[in-house]
């Protein structure tokens, strides 16, 4: 076997100057960025009153709480918890449906291929963006002021905050639709409404259905927490049990939530594949 010739370093250096002699700015950019990110991190730790002593005593406390959680035990309130879980699922289903029904017509107004005028689309889009900028929990608080405590406020909160998200996602789905079908309908003398109904909807409905199902999944999670501010469902029970330090019930409730979310994920995954095949759904 012959020995490979030793490469000539000088020649290589001359041939690939940007590999061997990178300018200082390029070499320093990455470390500088990491250093900057780390500096903000440390500033944050100090500003947010982190201290090793607090962290340590908190960890101690947390370990103790975890021990208290075992074994999970609902006590005598299992029926209450089950009906609260049902309430949570109802909130998610109703909220998602209402949001989808109202978002569909509005999303048409925000889609470029339906409303070509930017002047008309802009306010609709900003309106949807503002709704999305406000968290579901905030909407829940607002609705509680309007319709009172209870699951109904939760339904409306989820409906409103999803309305913003759906409006955006639907209009993107509509913009991504093929316009040949629409042109075909127009060529055969259809009106604008015909174009939407027969040219556009068959293309976008499966996509929309997939997104709605995906949101139903994620809303099951949101619906578990809006109870914390008093908008019904299992979150109400959870927050109450945490406040009175009934840790065994807390861990049981958390387990219930995990199982319910996993079940919903599984079901809606099956449904999604049945509707749109193995096409990926845009994740939000």
């Amino acid at each position: 076997m012959s020995q490979l010739p030793k490469p000539d370093a000088g020649q290589l250096r001359a041939r690939y100057p940007d590999v061997f002699d990178r300018p200082a700015s390029a070499r320093l950019a990455m470390p500088a960025m990491i250093l900057g990110a780390f500096a903000i991190f440390v500033f944050g730790l100090v500003d947010l009153e982190f201290s090793p002593a607090r962290l340590f005593s908190g960890m101690h406390q947390l370990g103790w709480i975890t021990l208290m959680m075992i074994p999970p035990d609902p006590g005598s309130s299992l029926p209450i918890y089950l009906s609260a879980l049902g309430e949570t699922l109802s909130i998610a289903l109703l909220g998602t449906t209402i949001a989808a029904v109202f978002a569909l017509p509005v999303s048409l107004l925000a889609a470029r291929n339906i409303i070509p005028s930017k002047l008309m689309r802009f306010p609709v889009r900003r309106f949807l963006d503002s709704i999305r900028g406000v968290d579901t929990l905030i909407w829940a608080l607002v609705w509680i002021n309007v319709v009172g405590l209870g699951p109904f406020a939760g339904v409306l909160a989820i409906a409103v905050s999803d309305f913003g998200a759906f409006g955006k996602l639907f209009s993107e789905a509509i913009e991504a639709a093929d316009k040949k079908q629409v042109e075909g309908i127009r060529a055969s003398g259809g009106s604008v409404l015909h174009e939407i109904r027969f040219g556009l909807m068959p293309q976008v409905l499966p996509v929309i259905a997939g997104q709605v199902l995906y949101f139903f999944e994620s809303n099951t999670r949101s619906a578990t927490i809006i109870g914390i501010v008093g908008a019904g469902g299992i979150g109400l029970q959870l927050a109450e049990q945490i406040r009175v330090l009934e840790w065994q019930k807390v861990s049981f409730l958390i387990l219930m939530i995990l199982v319910a979310v996993a079940a919903i994920d599984w079901i809606s995954g099956k449904l999604r594949f049945a509707i749109i095949g193995r096409r990926a759904v845009a994740q939000f």
């Binding site: 009153e49 962290l55 960890m59 945490i242």
Partner: peptide, 19 residues
Amino acid sequence: VPGIVFALIFVIAFGLGPM
């Protein structure tokens, strides 16, 4: 487990505040 549920528990363990 939603973030805010963790927050509820952590507030009890670590005390009120941003931590």
